[in-house]
Design a protein around this nucleic acid. Structure first.
Lengths: 151, 151
DNA sequence: TATTGTTATACTCTATAACTATA
DNA sequence: TATAGTTATAGAGTATAACAATA
């Protein structure tokens, strides 16, 4: 019933917690910190993991299509693709009939790393969301997806 | 049952949607874009709204305490406090017995703007989350808070 | 010695404009 | 003329180190 001194200090932002966006930002901050650590051990950033995953699942897509999918600017994708290429995780393949475009293809090593990293990210989420029941976690996922569809 | 061409293009990142963190990032991105627009009309950024709100609710707190509450660096708080002070929304008041510290106090104008901005943010969330039922929205809020407590 | 506020700075992310080569 | 990839660059946001004043 009574709060300790520490509780009060930690709750100075409680008036912001009535806003869903604020709670979500704080929640995402926790997730991203742990995710960065997990992916960092594999030499990946969150955005390079995302790009690699989409390329593995949609081989042959162009840089513009990938930029649209991940909602990042084409220009900012260039160095990211450079990184993945230099590590031999993907290749820029020519597109027959349009020499402007590059078809992004995963290498065998890229496919392997995508599998390993995907498992690592799944484990990271299992660990972080252990405080929620399976049903609560599924419901959170459903509500976020519904929000994204309807907002 | 069948997907249109546009659906397929928009769903290139569906393999990432299995990750809660990715869905949350996309959801938060929608929220923040609208929030920036709403608060921008009042001359505020999200972070200055947060700071002002905490100062109004916890008058007299120090810059270090505010930095802890909002999880931003003390050093990065300085220009933010400068901004709010120059707009006469808050004042840095001396603390009796410790001349190192500043007690952050809202002005009458700061209290007024905090009320107006708080109402605007509430309306922004009502609008954005109109696609969810009241119960779903409350559940989303509860699950995010539970995650933050247990992660 | 430690803490508060401050300054300076560097690093990452993101957004925009302009270029090239192709279509 | 328009598009895909690229380059350069500027602006946020964030993190770190060091300093002056004070405890």
């Amino acid at each position: 019933m009574t709060q300790t001194h520490t509780d009060r200090i930690d709750d100075l932002d409680q008036d912001l917690s009535v806003f869903l966006g604020y709670e979500m930002k704080r929640a995402l901050s926790l997730i991203q910190a742990d995710l960065a650590r997990v992916l960092g051990e594999l030499g990946l950033r969150a955005v390079s993991f995302s790009a690699l995953t989409v390329i593995v699942q949609t081989p042959g897509l162009t840089q513009s299509a990938l930029a649209d999918a991940l909602q990042i600017e084409r220009s900012n994708l260039v160095t990211l693709i450079d990184e993945l290429s230099e590590r031999n995780l993907i290749v820029r393949a020519p597109v027959a009939g349009d020499r402007r475009r590059h078809a992004l293809m995963p290498t065998a090593e890229g496919q392997r790393l995508a599998r390993v990293a995907g498992a690592a990210v799944a484990a990271h989420e299992d660990r972080l969301f252990a405080g929620l029941t399976e049903e609560e976690r599924r419901e959170l996922q459903r509500l976020l997806a519904k929000f994204r569809r309807t907002a």
